[in-house]
Structure formats: C-alpha cells, structure tokens
Simulated scan of single mutants.
Amino acid sequence: MDEIASITDTNLTETQFYNRADEINMLSSLLGTTEFNSSPTILLTGIRGVGKTALIKKIKHKFDKEYLVVDIDLSRSNAYQQKKLSRGSIIKIIYDAIIKASKEFGLRTLDKKIEKYFKTNKFKIDKILSYEHIPVPVFESEENYARLADFVMELPQKIYEDNSDKLKGVFIFIDEIQLIKDLDNVDKFLWYMRSFIQNQKNVAY
C-alpha cells in the first residue's frame, strides 16, 4: 500500500491521488478543445493547500506529449523573491518559460526565428544572452519592453502555427496568479493580456 501523501505533494501516484476523477475529466475535456481551435481560459481557485497545484500537475502529464505545456510559478521567480515583481518582469518570466518548454519539447528552430524577429523589428538591444542556445534579449529602454510584451503574448500562437504538425496546441499554466494583485494598474495589465488571449485559437490559459 502506498504511504499517505502530504497534502502539498505534487508527485502523487494513482492510488494517492484520491477523489478527483470528475475534476480531472472536466478540466481535461476543456483543455482538449484547444485542438479544435476553441481554446479555453480557466481560473482554478481554492484555499491554500487544498491541492490545486497537484491537480494541475496531474492534468499536465496527460497532455505533455502532444501539447506544448508551459509551466509558470510566479512565486518561484527571482523577481517575486526579490520583491521586484512588475509587468515587465512577468512578461520576461512568461518568455523564459516558453523558451524552456519549447526546448524541452524539441522545437530546435525556435532560436533562429526569435533572433530574426529581433533583428527585423529593430529592437534596441543592449545585448543578447544565450539560454541553451536560445537568444534572450536585454533591452536598452522600457519602450522596448512594451514591444517585447506584444511579441511574447503572440509567441505561443506563432509557435503552434509553425509546429502544427508536431503540436495539438499550447497550454500556459500560471500558478500563484494572485500575486499580480499588487501591480500598478493591474486591471489594465489584465485587459492587455486578455486582448491577446481571446484571439488565440490554439493556446489555452
């Protein structure tokens, strides 16, 4: 018999993950519509420690062979740990997570396409760091971060379109999303994100 798991354990076995079949089936069905150009936006709420992260991790494993699964935990980011969470840092966190997930999935041509985008759109870049051979730009001004934000928010759909022979869709999981509540103009930021999300047919959030 498996030992009883901690309520915060995110690596539960089938026998330890108890009484969540209905929730798993419902969320899986919603996420599965991404394959058919009807991607959902889902907000999962509950008290701390009830098992939200464990539930999502369980669901992610069902899809990570056919979908690009981007996993973001704002509470683990350096920006949050250093009390410097901002709209700009959140965009960078999303960008880094997309790059990491793409590399792990094996989308090897992504680096060339991103570098070409930066050059052709004349970003004022101070330098480009290399993250596992993927270009990560360091910009000269805040104006460029606004342009980067548009690029990052459009990137998941572009990745799908360029790799639709390999992917059924893209999932962006953002854990601890409530941390954005202290941002300046948080409503404006959410509406900004929504303006992209609602037009992406193959990206679920």
Rank of each mutant, 00 (worst) to 15 (best):
N78K: 15
E23G: 02
F139I: 00
E104S: 09
F118W: 05
V138T: 09
I172L: 10
V203H: 02
H61I: 10
I159L: 07
D187M: 08
L110F: 06
Y192W: 14
R76V: 09
I180K: 04
F196R: 04
Y145T: 08
K116S: 11
D184F: 15
Q157R: 10
I172F: 04
Q157W: 09
I93A: 02
S195H: 09
F139Y: 15
D162G: 08
N25Q: 13
I125G: 02
K58V: 02
D64V: 08
K52P: 07
S29Q: 11
A101S: 14
S28A: 07
I93Q: 05
F189W: 12
G169E: 00
F151S: 06
A97L: 01
R87N: 13
D175H: 07
G51L: 04
K166P: 10
I91M: 04
F196L: 04
L183F: 05
F173D: 00
I128R: 07
M1E: 12
V69N: 03
F173M: 01
G46W: 11
F36E: 13
A54M: 06
F63H: 02
L167I: 03
K113L: 08
T8Q: 11
T33R: 14
K92P: 01
Y95C: 01
L179H: 01
I177G: 05
N11P: 02
S77K: 00
G46V: 09
I94A: 00
I159H: 07
I94Q: 00
V152L: 05
I24A: 05
T13R: 01
F173Q: 00
K57I: 08
Y18W: 12
F189Q: 09
F189L: 12
S38I: 09
T120I: 15
V186Y: 06
K127Q: 05
E143A: 14
N202P: 08
R108E: 11
N163W: 01
